[in-house]
């Protein structure tokens, strides 16, 4: 218990001093996970919408697989991306292993199924309400997808945030493909892992507190924006 209260004090201290290293690490965390969630969303939202509207044999299987992939182990994703990006791998010539770009790719792959599966569910539910009206207006499949994606934007934001939360909190994948290089690929989670292995548990926990506070702040901001917009747009 003593360590926990010590960590709280330490966390406050770090934040109050605007510790430069902490700022850089937290900034990189936000940047890596932010880009990852953006890239993943650009693919996952249309994929979720398409899967919600499409009817083809084996659709249920695809949905089941997608839902299952929400639980992809970060370490496995990290390893796969590592093997792809390694100099000895097929994308080795890019030379981006142990860079933030590799971390973004790994996180994007990790959360793509989460955002796609959650948005598929949301859009599938709404489709039963919108279907007849949109078909009556002779909307094409593509127009239906776009109309639903835009109409459900506030609900879909929750799916995107779920992906972001998972991305910024995971350590296994970014540790492997980023290498936890000081000042280059060290993010909040790998810094926490490092301090833990150095036995500096109070500092590790303090960083954890800062990470949690950061995630909560972002979610709160998104939630406020969402409820404000929903009041305005119905």
């Amino acid at each position: 218990m003593e360590e926990i209260s010590q960590s709280m004090g330490l966390a406050m201290g770090l934040v109050r001093q605007l510790d430069q290293t902490l700022l850089a690490i937290a900034g990189l965390s936000l940047k890596v996970s932010g880009v990852a969630v953006l890239a993943a969303s650009l693919l996952a939202l249309p994929l979720g919408a398409w899967l919600a509207l499409a009817r083809f044999p084996g659709r249920q299987v695809v949905i089941a697989v997608l839902n299952g992939m929400m639980g992809l182990p970060p370490v496995v994703v990290g390893l796969l991306i590592y093997l792809l990006l390694s100099r000895a791998g097929p994308l080795g010539s890019l030379g981006i292993l142990f860079t933030p770009a590799a971390m973004m790719i790994a996180q994007a792959v990790l959360i793509l199924p989460i955002i796609a599966a959650l948005s598929r569910q949301v859009i599938d539910d709404a489709w039963s309400e919108y279907r007849e009206q949109l078909l009556s207006l002779n909307a094409t499949r593509w127009q239906c997808m776009r109309a639903l994606l835009w109409d459900l934007r506030f609900t879909l934001l929750t799916a995107v945030l779920a992906g972001f939360g998972r991305a910024i909190a995971e350590v296994g994948a970014v540790m492997i493909v980023g290498g936890n290089i000081d000042g280059v690929t060290r993010v909040m989670t790998t810094a926490i892992a490092l301090e833990t292995s150095k036995g500096d548990l109070p500092l590790a926990l303090a960083l954890g507190v800062v990470l949690i506070a950061l995630v909560i702040a972002i979610n709160t901001a998104a939630q406020l924006m969402k409820s404000y917009s929903m009041r305005r747009h119905g």
């Binding site: 309400e129 002779n138 459900l152």
Partner: peptide, 19 residues
């Protein structure tokens, strides 16, 4: 009626464009 989450006018504009 199924209204899209946008203004009354935009709902009609949507139908016209789709049409």
């Amino acid at each position: 009626p199924v209204m899209l989450r946008r203004t009354a006018r935009e709902n009609i504009e949507f139908a016209l464009r789709v049409g």
